[in-house]
């Protein structure tokens, strides 16, 4: 069924690119946030050596926006396809359910990489020094984070009642996670109850892993974040197979 997987991936990519709002939301907004805030912060403070002066790490924020945008778009697409009977229609073909959803995840991961590449290019052009990081390692950290966040997206997609509410519910549940991710202030400052919640969210571990990579630490030093992201992926995937609705 590999042929079906690639065909579906390719078709979904084309269909996505024809949706102007989707492209702006998933790629345009993170890049705009990156440039506008980067200009405001002053590009000098963004470099590796000056991190201490910046209020928060802007590239990580932009990267998180890319990952969360991908998840919101996934929630919207899945609920739209479910409501239109498209998921059910595909299930009546030899494609396996895993292949169908896997193609969607794959498209979102490619989109994430494209988004990061855009950030890098834009950063090099407009915010010198802003993207000074081991790009390979950072990309890997972002991809792992995205996979984990997307799996949470599947759980949310199973819960939204109708496609009309998918976008607002997805946005309302996913984006606020940034606030308690440790990006803006240390987790220790949070009330204990909220801190517990924060540790259960993929964004928190995503920030800690990406910050670690940013600071030049090896992955070994951040194995807790890696394990946490994988664990969240496992739990959410397990939960999705129980609660996912095809129609």
């Amino acid at each position: 069924m590999l042929r079906g997987f690639w065909k579906l991936t390719w078709v979904e990519t084309k269909v996505f690119l024809r949706e102007p709002l989707g492209v702006i939301g998933s790629l345009g907004i993170p890049v705009i946030i990156f440039i506008v805030l980067g200009r405001a912060q002053g590009s000098r403070t963004l470099g590796n050596e000056a991190m201490g002066e910046a209020p928060f790490n802007l590239p990580i924020l932009a990267a998180l926006f890319i990952a969360l945008g991908a998840a919101v778009s996934l929630v919207a697409i899945i609920s739209l396809y479910r409501e239109g009977g498209f998921l059910k229609r595909l299930r009546a073909t030899p494609l396996s359910p895993v292949t169908i959803l896997g193609a969607h995840v794959f498209v979102k991961l490619v989109l994430t990489v494209v988004g990061l590449a855009l950030l890098t290019l834009v950063g090099r052009r407009f915010l010198p020094g802003a993207m000074d990081v081991d790009l390979l390692s950072f990309t890997a950290a972002l991809l792992l984070s995205t996979v984990s966040i997307l799996s949470l997206g599947f759980v949310i997609a199973s819960l939204v009642p109708t496609a009309r509410f998918a976008q607002p519910i997805g946005t309302g549940l996913l984006y606020p996670m940034i606030a308690v991710s440790g990006l803006f202030f240390p987790l220790e400052q949070l009330p204990p109850a909220i801190r517990v919640v924060a540790y259960g969210l993929p964004t928190t571990h995503a920030v800690s892993l990406m910050q670690g990579v940013w600071d030049g630490a090896g992955w070994g030093a951040h194995w807790v974040s890696v394990v946490a992201l994988i664990l969240i992926f496992g739990v959410c995937t397990g939960l999705s197979t129980k609660v996912f609705r095809w129609e």
């Binding site: 078709v11 979904e12 084309k14 269909v15 949706e19 239109g84 009977g85 498209f86 229609r89 009546a92």
Partner: peptide
Amino acid sequence: VQHQEAHLQKRI
């Protein structure tokens, strides 16, 4: 199989 009230992707 042809389903009652099915849709495809809008822009396929």
